[in-house]
């Protein structure tokens, strides 16, 4: 059997979601953002809510997400996406509203906004990409940077005396009564990706069941910031990030 016999429309089993635009993503080779974008696109497509979903992309590597997912988007100031999403969600209760934030955006400058949006139990989904670094600006330390981890602003490894401790923001948010579903996922293997997609699907469905804010952290890699190949980055993530940021559902009321 020739390859050309296999490659036929009727034999198609997997293709890029039509919700992903044709724009080439600016992300570095192997970056987890691209995988999470594809998952969100697939979830929105399967739920058939492209015309009722509004995304909020704050400053960070993923601010340009609005060039890749074919839905309506609001670009937000650094750290303020949960507030922008609150404004949209409160005035469009029928819409699916989600933010797509990095660790610097959510756990550093935007800590107050994410805390209070979750505390109010806004009916939104917060997608939080934790790669322990500021990617867009060239690899500086983030609140989730691990002790001893080398970054552009911790050239000798993060020192708790100087920079404090890595922040487990997701566990903090799970303490707030306003959050309903809080989970930590990863996208480094096919199995992890399938789990992450189910988690995202559940998060989106939850916002219509008045169960409070859905929060999906995705522990991801930043091969350029970590100065590793994508494969090495995945291994380093498993060995170093997962012990500090264990995967799995943290809260599910």
């Amino acid at each position: 059997m020739e390859i050309t016999d296999i490659i036929r429309q009727e034999n198609l089993v997997y293709a890029k979601s039509p919700l992903l635009t044709d724009n080439i993503m600016h992300y570095c080779p192997g970056c987890s953002h691209g995988v999470v974008h594809a998952l969100i696109a697939a979830v929105i497509e399967e739920m058939g809510v492209q015309d009722r979903t509004i995304g909020v992309s704050p400053v960070g590597c993923s601010v340009l997400a609005y060039n890749y997912l074919d839905i309506d988007w609001a670009e937000a100031a650094h750290g303020r996406a949960p507030a922008v999403a609150t404004g949209i969600s409160r005035l469009h209760p029928d819409k699916y509203v989600f933010t797509y934030q990095g660790d610097g955006d959510l756990a550093s400058i935007g800590t107050a906004e994410v805390m209070h949006a979750c505390n109010r139990g806004e009916n939104i989904v917060i997608v939080f990409i934790n790669n322990a670094i500021y990617g867009m600006t060239g690899g500086q330390m983030a609140p989730t940077t691990l002790v001893g981890q080398v970054t552009a602003t911790t050239p000798y490894g993060r020192d708790v005396k100087l920079n404090g401790f890595p922040m487990k923001i997701t566990e903090l948010l799970a303490q707030l009564d306003g959050t309903g579903y809080v989970t930590r996922q990863a996208v480094h293997t096919p199995l992890a990706i399938r789990k992450a997609k189910n988690a995202l699907r559940k998060a989106f469905e939850n916002t219509k069941k008045d169960k409070g804010t859905s929060f999906v952290e995705v522990v991801g890699t930043c091969s350029s910031g970590w100065k590793m190949t994508p494969a090495e980055a995945n291994r380093w993530m498993v060995e170093n990030m997962f012990p500090k940021y264990p995967l799995g559902d943290i809260k599910d009321i």
């Binding site: 609001a74 100031a77 507030a83 404004g87 949209i88 969600s89 906004e113």
Partner: peptide, 16 residues
């Protein structure tokens, strides 16, 4: 929770 959050909520609502 702050004036900063408030103006960004306005941004969200206005964008609609």
């Amino acid at each position: 929770e702050s004036e900063i959050a408030a103006i960004n909520m306005v941004y969200g609502a206005a964008s609609c």
